[in-house]
């Protein structure tokens, strides 16, 4: 899922300084699961905005609601139900949600409440870690299911680099050397011959460096 965290309240307050009617709009998708922008967090943020405005001696109507997701057109359309209740939307969705509102509601002002961080999972309660770079050319079948693109500090395709010590990364000592983990795992699952393969120079054109990517599924388009 997409992992995010709330921006500093002062930054959000600066965004809405001129708004008189503010709608804090939660997303019940990924950011709800990672406790950054679900209904509970949006309610807290709305309260913090009210307290912040009160401290500054300002008055504004701050309401709070949610959408099932903010990354689908049909759900963005349901913003119509809030018509007249806001002159600024503070979205607690990931950056995708904010973009979708901006794309589909050309007259509306929308601000991001979160810093969208990465694609990852919950390592344990309250801790999330990055697991996938969305590079567009997955090689997990060659690396025992562990991703060197995002989990190796150098994104090496032929690792380890030689700098790891006791299975820890030389750049981030609190991070495991993923290439050590790949070697250990490939041997454990009986695929050690795969470690003899030398990966060719990688074609990075499928990553995001060439502008926004798009997938068209003609079997699904109408």
């Amino acid at each position: 899922m997409i992992i995010a965290e709330r921006k500093p309240v002062a930054e959000i307050l600066a965004m809405v300084k001129d708004a008189k009617k503010i709608l804090v709009l939660a997303c019940r998708g990924c950011v709800s699961v990672c406790s950054a922008g679900g209904e509970r967090e949006a309610e807290i943020l709305a309260s913090l905005i009210r307290i912040g405005l009160k401290k500054e001696g300002k008055e504004a109507q701050v309401s709070c609601d949610s959408l099932v997701r903010q990354c689908d057109k049909e759900f963005i359309d349901s913003i119509d139900q809030f018509k007249g209740t806001y002159d600024a939307i503070v979205s607690t969705a990931c950056g995708v949600g904010v973009n979708f509102i901006a794309n589909l509601r050309p007259q509306d002002t929308v601000y991001p409440a979160l810093n969208t961080s990465f694609m990852g999972g919950s390592a344990e309660q309250g801790i999330w870690s990055e697991q996938c770079a969305g590079c567009g050319d997955c090689i997990l079948h060659l690396t025992g299911g562990l991703c060197p693109v995002v989990r190796c500090a150098k994104s090496l395709m032929n690792g380890p680099c030689g700098g790891s010590v006791n299975g820890r990364c030389e750049i981030h000592a609190d991070v495991e050397c993923i290439w050590q983990a790949i070697h250990d795992r490939m041997i454990r699952i009986g695929q050690s011959e795969g470690l003899d393969r030398i990966a060719p120079i990688r074609d990075w054109s499928t990553t995001s460096h060439g502008g926004p990517r798009k997938i068209v599924r003609e079997d699904l388009t109408i």
């Binding site: 500093p8 309240v9 002062a10 807290i44 913090l48 307290i51 912040g52 401290k55």
Partner: peptide
Amino acid sequence: KSLQELGL
């Protein structure tokens, strides 16, 4: 933390 952020 929030109160600190808000300057309260």
